[in-house]
Amino acid sequence: MSVLAVEGLAKSFGAVRAADDVSFTVAAGEMLALIGPNGAGKSTCFNMVGGQLAPDAGRVRLDGRDITGAAPGRICRLGAGRTFQVAATFASMSVRENVQMALIAHRRRVWRFLRPAAGECRVEAEALLARLGMADQAERAASVLAYGDLKRLELAMALAGSPRLLLMDEPTAGMAQAERASLMRLVRALATADAIAVLFTEHDMDAVFSTADRILVLDHGRIIASGDGPAIRADPKVRAVYLGED
């Protein structure tokens, strides 16, 4: 069974149809890329899945459970981790504390008032950081990290809840070419190892074609093509949209 199932999703902003009858599924361990020219509706679809936007119509199911219009926090607790286009972390905390915070949130240990937080979920946080190759940065302030490391920290936080689904909005935006490839390889390895379904949007076509199992092309809010890399490359509609844009 698919981890994420989206059916007939629609959203309009005034007269603009940002998403129109969008349907797709993502299976466990599968990486699905959502691409399209600027303004095609990628972020809109993405935010409707993540709970940041409520759809006008359609259904979103996570592991068979209806999460349409649920708040981001609830969607997160039901098993969806997410990263943002501009990395969002907690600047006043160390790298390790950022991950601890995500673990504390997941295990609902927020309402503890007197026990020092330093010891909460510390071992798990360190294990997670080690897995992402960030063990040596654990005690640094999140605010001084290089951008690529910040993105990996965000990924660690998204993984803290052992998600079934990982939502990544432009995961490599703002990164250098070498960093991009290494981050996408890391995501690929994690998705395969933990059977996580990954839905991501991306501008960098190298990252898309080298990592995605399947690609979905949006234009004016509608899906115009879907398939694996070679099929998408050969698709005349896709070529028209992208080449016509150039």
């Binding site: 997410r82 907690f90 905390m93 915070m101 504390i104 949130a105 927020v110 937080a117 998204a158």
Partner: peptide
């Protein structure tokens, strides 16, 4: 820590639940 998290990044705080 959670309180500080809501200040540092409300977006991320909501996204981790």
């Amino acid at each position: 820590y959670a309180l500080r998290a809501t200040r540092d990044s409300p977006l991320r705080a909501a996204a981790i639940g």
